[in-house]
Amino acid sequence: MWDTHLVVAALRADRADVESYARVLSHVLGDALPPGMVEVERRRGLFGRGGEPVAVRVHGQDRLLELRAGKRGGVEAEAHQVVRGVVISRRAVTVEQWLELLAAELTGLAERDAAASAALGRLLNQ
């Protein structure tokens, strides 16, 4: 139903930092995604308030996708294989690979859930 290449292109558009991805995943798609699927880690701000996002984790059916601010700027990505809630492997991936894995998770969810499908349609302007 959904073309993962279109989803990747929509997610990739002008996003080069964790904050952009956090905004898209938590605001644009957040209401349609299952509770707890997207986790945003923030640097503590003034008086303990939430600061800027430093990591985004997307919990899929059998994987955890993590995108975080790199130590020297930019973005670092990892894909973790999960079995019954336990990470059994992790590997560094490129941001492009991370986006492809995320698109596959989102399209799979959209095929099973009408609200997720509608949110994905809004992201793709369809």
Rank of each mutant, 00 (worst) to 15 (best):
V18G: 01
V18S: 01
E19A: 15
E19H: 12
Y21L: 07
A22T: 12
R23S: 14
R23C: 10
R23Y: 15
V24W: 10
S26P: 08
H27L: 15
H27E: 15
V28Q: 13
V28G: 00
V28L: 14
L29Q: 09
D31T: 13
P34L: 09
P34Q: 07
P34M: 09
P35L: 12
M37L: 13
M37F: 07
V38N: 06
V38C: 09
E39W: 04
E39D: 06
E41I: 12
G45N: 09
G45A: 10
L46T: 06
F47E: 00
G50A: 15
G51K: 07
G51L: 08
E52M: 08
P53V: 09
V54R: 12
V54A: 05
R57P: 00
V58H: 03
V58P: 01
H59D: 05
R63G: 03
L65C: 03
E66T: 11
E66F: 00
L67M: 14
L67F: 05
L67N: 01
R68C: 05
R72A: 10
R72Q: 05
A77S: 13
A79C: 10
A79H: 02
Q81I: 06
V83T: 11
R84I: 04
R84T: 07
V86D: 05
V86W: 06
V87A: 09
I88G: 01
